[in-house]
Design a protein around this nucleic acid. Sequence first.
DNA 1: TCGCGCACCGCAAACGTTTGCGTTACGCAA
DNA 2: TTGCGTAACGCAAACGTTTGCGGTGCGCGA
Lengths: 356, 356
Amino acid sequence: MAATLVEIARLARVSVATVSRALNGQPGVGPKMRKRIQALAAQVDYTPHANARALVTGRIPFLGLVVPDITNPFFPSLARGAEEEAFARGYSLLLLNTNWSPTRLRQAFDLLTSRRVAGLMMSVSLEGLGDDHRDWSDLARTVVMAGVPAPVGSGIGAVDVDDLEGGRLVGRHLLERGWRRIGFVAGSAADRSARDRLAGLQEALAEAGRPGALGATSAGEWSEASGYDQARRLLARRSRPDAIFAANDLLALGVARAAAEAGMALGTDLGLVGYDDIDSVRWTAVPITSVSQPEFDVGREAARRLVALAEGAVAEPDARLEPCLVVRASSGANPHARPATADGALAFQTSTETVR
Amino acid sequence: MAATLVEIARLARVSVATVSRALNGQPGVGPKMRKRIQALAAQVDYTPHANARALVTGRIPFLGLVVPDITNPFFPSLARGAEEEAFARGYSLLLLNTNWSPTRLRQAFDLLTSRRVAGLMMSVSLEGLGDDHRDWSDLARTVVMAGVPAPVGSGIGAVDVDDLEGGRLVGRHLLERGWRRIGFVAGSAADRSARDRLAGLQEALAEAGRPGALGATSAGEWSEASGYDQARRLLARRSRPDAIFAANDLLALGVARAAAEAGMALGTDLGLVGYDDIDSVRWTAVPITSVSQPEFDVGREAARRLVALAEGAVAEPDARLEPCLVVRASSGANPHARPATADGALAFQTSTETVR
DNA sequence: TCGCGCACCGCAAACGTTTGCGTTACGCAA
DNA sequence: TTGCGTAACGCAAACGTTTGCGGTGCGCGA
């Protein structure tokens, strides 16, 4: 069923070398013979044996993509961006879930190297691998981090999103809308992205000469339930924040639920902005302002760099993509704020809008 | 860097055959020698060359997964189920997006066959391939449909979800809650899943002796905007439905928006149930009842069948997995319905609950 | 007409495995 | 001690390509 070069060669009464050259568009074969061979190949439904080719060329056109959990809304579009770019360059994508398990991460790693993939994109922190692992340096040529930072000093390239800038966008926006006391809720406080987002917020407040506008900060897990709990505690304080920055949208959904329970209207009684711009935040009773990350572009760019690396190009400096703010009603405007304009009108648009 | 069997053989002063047998746990090599070779292999960090192995054994442990768009919330968990099962059985997953394009579908198909994958799972209808394609019959051994039906008469196995039953669940539930006139909105009316869900609804109504409870049916696209438009038209009719069954959750979200605009409260003024149980329907102002599909299990089961097929097992009859209903507030209860119980109490629970 | 050069094509090695078969050597019974 | 059976190991072919190198034929200029 599966025709090989040998059969075609036999049919055409030429050598396999000639058939190979003819079908791969390489020089050294006459036009009429090439035509004949191509016709023959089409006739017997020849499909090249990628593995055999890979064996002699040493490189197989596969790219590995390791994600913690494809179910997490962040990763599918990253995967799609990567797949699109890879496909366009003749590579295929090998998908591996680690389910956040270091063991699975290690297994995925070994699997991919045993498959001799051309390169692999890691969307999960490499810290879990431990230092006893083989030297990073020989990986640097064929690995690029996608959406997460590389281990320090590893020399591995990375393309991720600027969490600092995301925090800044939120800070500026909330101040602009007249909020005065901004609370911050996060998942794990140890998480680098959480720290960066908070740092960005602080920077923006400092820039505006309002460092004191940062209210209480809180941490828990990256879940809706945790957001609910944290918000309840924050809102029960004597000096409650009038706005909350949730470090991801699941948390923001929890905050929204807590606010609703407390009888507070989002956008007027409480300002709220989340992070990630997942689909759900568009459909809440009052839609939630959120920071949107270019995951698709992260995947695309990571794949581009990876094939470049695999094909011998020199490593490029890390890419840091910019997030953007999607403004919705939840960040509304503080009714108690002093009018920002001379005539006292607060002309804030409430429809969905993208800043930057 | 990458050690081969040859090097180990040279180091151990034995033949490659012995090394191969020792490392693969095959008989024909003494225990002491085996130990020695294993130690040596570990020492030089040997990783088997999967491609070379695949070349001689003829089978490469890859499974292809073709989806229309991994960004669509339905597919990531299907992919995860498939990946989990495949991984457990020593196979890796090759991910391909077709972006709903028949051209890309064809390309994906050719790509996978050229890679000589052990088998492939199709989550996209094969109709787009056209009949001029190579015979289905030789594919039947290495292809299984996942979440979509197989072409009729193709002999290709399938594992999908019972849309008829889903429709029935919805019909019974809505009647139970006292709704009397049930409208139906869908995406493409030509879509088999849409037809089956409607048919199931009709069956349930007929079973209950209330075939007349089916109100207007409508079709458009599988989008929120379309749901909004369709709902507006339905609700503007003189004989407006008092409940709506949306054939997917995006449509349901649109219906919810239209209802809110019309000043109708979900669960009391209008019953609503969607399909797919995407995350967003949990966070709307009034959470939406929806039919949940076991996508994860579909992927898992499809992968299981595929490796069984690839390893020579006989084809099993098609599997049809059962959906279940996740009850939320939007299906509430019709306040104008005659009490169903003797004492006039309508003891419906309004919290999230799963039927079946 | 002769000779040179180049386009065209074939030969064969190589990539890293697996595996059937042949050979060696060892242990044990006679 | 001799014979035989079997466990242990080596040889070499094979999988389907690619590719450097060598060989043949042709066309062209002199």
